[in-house]
Design a protein around this nucleic acid. Structure first.
Lengths: 221, 221
DNA sequence: AATAAATTTTAGACAAATCTAAAAAATAAA
DNA sequence: TTTATTTTTTAGATTTGTCTAAAATTTATT
C-alpha cells in the first residue's frame, strides 16, 4: 500500500490537478479560490506537499504536481467518479446531487474496496457527468462529449444523452432509430441551414440544426 | 440535519455505547482499552461530550450516554453494519475482512445516502456477523443467534448459517429439509445423548448433537 | 483505619490544519 | 523606471485531538 494522506492533503492534490489541466501552471490564489480557503493556508500546505515530494514548487514562482503527485490525484479522482456512478446507477440519486457525497467517499482509503466497486459497476468509463474514470493504473480514455453540431465529420460516436426531453423530439428520434447508445457518424454538414447528413447502421438520415443541438454524443480519441 | 460530529467523537460514542451495553456503566480505562488510546485522552474527550450534552458524566464517578448520545451512537452503528452488509453481499468481501473498511465508511455523514443504501440492500435486519442493524429511527429487533443446542425449547427460529460446510452434513440437512431460512422449533431435548426432536413444517425430526452444533439459527425477542 | 495500589484527572506540551495581520516579492501602471 | 497594486509568504495565534508526567481521588489491602 502507498502511504496515506489526510483528506485535506488529498483535496489540495485534486484541486491542483484540475487547475493545472486547465491552466498548465497553478497559483496560490487559484487554489485558495477553488478550496474556499485563504492564500496563507495554501502556502502552508504547499510546503508540506513539497516536503512529501508530491509537488514541484519554488516560492513566488508557481507550482505543479510531479509524477507521484499526479498519480495520487488520479486515484482520488477515480474514487470520486466511481462513487458518483454508484450513487446514480445503484442508489438512484440524481446526477446533480451526488458531488457533495462523493467528496466524502473519495477519501476512503481501501484500494481493494475501490477495485471491487469498479468491478461491481461493470468497469464504467465515464461518471454521470460524462467525465472519464481513470482505471486502477491511473489511465483513462479521453472521451469527448459534444452535441451533434460539434461532432467532427467522419468521427464515429455514440449517443449519450438528449437535451430536450419533450415527447415530440423523442418521437422524431425514435422514428429515425436514434436512441441512447446508438452509434452514428456525421457524413456531411450543410452550411445553408446547418442541417446534417448522418450515417446510422449503414443508412443515411438528415437531421435539422434544432434536433442536432439536442443530441449529445461521446467519442474516444 | 442534526449537527455533525468528528470521526473521533463518533468513535468515542460508539465505544461507550458498546461498553455500557455490556457493563451498564463505563470507565475511563475501559474506553482507553477499546480505542487504543490513553486514559488522559479519554478524560479530555469526556469533557467535550458532556459539554455537547451527549454524556452523563461526573468526574471520578463513571459515565454513560444520555438519550441524545445513544441516538447518535445508534446511527453510527447502523451505518457501520449496513456498509458491512453491502461489502459482503454486493462486493463479495469475506465477513472477516469488512470491519476495518466499515470503520471508515461509518463516518460518511449523508443520512439520505444511508437510507438509500438500506433500501438498495433490501432493509437487512442483521449484518454479516449476525448483529442487528438499527432502522432509520434507531430501533432494532433484538435478534439472538445461537446453535440449535442453545435454542430454547418451543422458541420458533430460522436457520441462518451452517458451521461445517462439508458435503456430508449438507446432504443430511437436505434430506431432513433443513436449509437456510427454514423455520423450526425444538420440541424436546434428550439429556442422554444431547439429541433433539425438532418440528419443521409440522413434521417431527430427530437431530444428533453433532449436527445440532453446526446449525445456527436466529430468533427475535 | 491507615496505608498501598490502581484509577482518573490536571497541567502543560505537541502536531496538523487553519486563520489574521504584516512583510516580502512580483507585476502593473504612471 | 519609479511608484502603486496585487500576489505570495512569514510570523504568530487558534482549534482539535493527542500525549507524558504529576497530582488527586477512589479502591483494595493489611
Amino acid at each position: 500500500m502507498g502511504p496515506k494522506y489526510s483528506s485535506s492533503r488529498e483535496n489540495y492534490l485534486k484541486a491542483i490537478f484540475h487547475l493545472q489541466e486547465i491552466h498548465g501552471t497553478v497559483t496560490t490564489n487559484h487554489v485558495a479560490g477553488e478550496l474556499q480557503t485563504r492564500p496563507a493556508s495554501v502556502t502552508d500546505m504547499l510546503k508540506k506537499l513539497k516536503a512529501q515530494k508530491l509537488l514541484l514548487y519554488e516560492k513566488y514562482k508557481g507550482f505543479k504536481l510531479n509524477t507521484e503527485g499526479r498519480k495520487v490525484a488520479l486515484q482520488i479522482i477515480r474514487k470520486h467518479r466511481l462513487w458518483e456512478f454508484f450513487l446514480v446507477e445503484k442508489l438512484h440519486f440524481r446526477w446533480d446531487e451526488v458531488h457533495e457525497i462523493a467528496e466524502e467517499l473519495e477519501h476512503i482509503s481501501s484500494k481493494k474496496l475501490i477495485d471491487r466497486l469498479d468491478e461491481f459497476l461493470g468497469f464504467p468509463k465515464t461518471d454521470p457527468h460524462g467525465d472519464p474514470i481513470p482505471d486502477s493504473q491511473g489511465r483513462w480514455t479521453l472521451t469527448h462529449q459534444v452535441d451533434l453540431l460539434n461532432l467532427p465529420v467522419n468521427q464515429v460516436a455514440e449517443v449519450s444523452s438528449i437535451g430536450d426531453q419533450s415527447a415530440e423530439i423523442l418521437e422524431l428520434l425514435n422514428h429515425k432509430h436514434i436512441a441512447l447508445g446508438t452509434r452514428l457518424e456525421v457524413k456531411k454538414k450543410f452550411a445553408f441551414d446547418n442541417s446534417l447528413e448522418i450515417k446510422i447502421k449503414n443508412q443515411s438520415v438528415t437531421i435539422s440544426e434544432h434536433v442536432a443541438k439536442n443530441v449529445f454524443v461521446k467519442y474516444d480519441e
